[in-house]
């Protein structure tokens, strides 16, 4: 074994020792070597200190508060989307326990339950259907890119934005013109592992995004379908954003409004284009 490969082997052992990846026998053998070689002990100590310093330095980077808030909102939306929500499951567990009671006691318990807690039951029954996954994901990206202040990949007029997206997405991007609204810029996003386009428009104190993406059939669920002026639109709300989606050829399109707008506002916008 030449000196380089011997050195390489010692390095590998030293790292594996610190990584706690040696077997008991290998560990004992390496510790004997450490005992005999002060230089190796010095290297080990340096390596230990270096790792601690490196780890401490990199770990100073933490997720920003805004990301925490966005993720918590995503998790909250997911909870409310679950067909068996936590409150429903707890009611179910209670009722399952109740069937062990005598019949009269169960009847009384159910009656008391409906009288005392009926409001919550009614609230559960009347909770509107949760937004579909594609609507949630598209609206969630709006928040990440444009709230509170927009972070844009490209700014300029429609032609400049069109040119910027030309080599980045598989279809021609032609930013629509909306009278009374200013095109603020665009953002290259990702949806279904494919590039997607987010264009941000501003008018007065309101904003909305016009989006283009490579769609999948599941993005357009039948239960969200509405026909307006002979045109099939898929409408929903997610994270306080009205969202409408539609498809033309192989491209999916959408409008995402801010919290001050409604689905009707977006539909009106679409037909004013």
């Amino acid at each position: 074994m030449n000196s380089f490969s011997a050195q390489q082997e010692i390095d590998a052992l030293l790292y594996a020792y610190l990584d706690d990846e040696l077997s008991a026998e290998e560990r004992a053998a390496f510790e004997k070597q450490l005992h005999r070689q002060p230089e190796l002990r010095k290297r080990l100590e340096f390596e230990r200190q270096f790792r601690a310093h490196f780890r401490q330095t990199v770990r100073q980077t933490e997720a920003p508060a805004r990301l925490h808030a966005r993720v918590e909102a995503l998790l909250e939306a997911e909870t409310s989307a679950s067909p068996a929500s936590a409150s429903f499951r707890s009611w179910l567990a209670w009722l399952q326990g109740a069937v062990m009671l005598p019949r009269w006691a169960m009847a009384a318990a159910v009656l008391a339950l409906l009288i005392l807690l009926g409001g919550e039951v009614i609230q559960f029954v009347s909770t509107p259907a949760a937004p579909h996954t594609s609507f949630r994901r598209l609206a969630g990206k709006y928040d990440v890119y444009f709230t509170p202040e927009p972070v844009l990949d490209v700014q300029g007029d429609g032609e400049q934005i069109e040119a910027w997206f030309q080599s980045r997405v598989a279809w021609p991007v032609q930013p629509p013109v909306w009278p009374g609204w200013t095109l603020m810029g665009g953002r290259l996003a990702e949806f279904h592992h494919e590039p997607a386009v987010y264009l941000l428009y501003e008018g007065g104190n309101q904003r909305f995004a016009f989006i283009e993406f490579a769609p999948r059939a599941s993005d357009f669920p039948e239960e969200k379908r509405q026909v307006v002026d002979g045109r099939a639109l898929y409408v929903d709300e997610a994270f306080d954003h009205p969202v409408i989606l539609w498809q033309e050829g192989d491209v999916g399109y959408g409008l995402i409004g801010d919290a001050t707008q409604s689905v009707k506002d977006l539909v009106a916008l679409l037909f004013r284009r």
Partner: peptide
């Protein structure tokens, strides 16, 4: 940092799905 934030948001959405 901004792109990292977007990526992590996507990671969480994908993990949930």
């Amino acid at each position: 940092p901004q792109q990292a934030e977007d990526i992590v948001h996507d990671v969480v959405a994908k993990a949930l799905e």
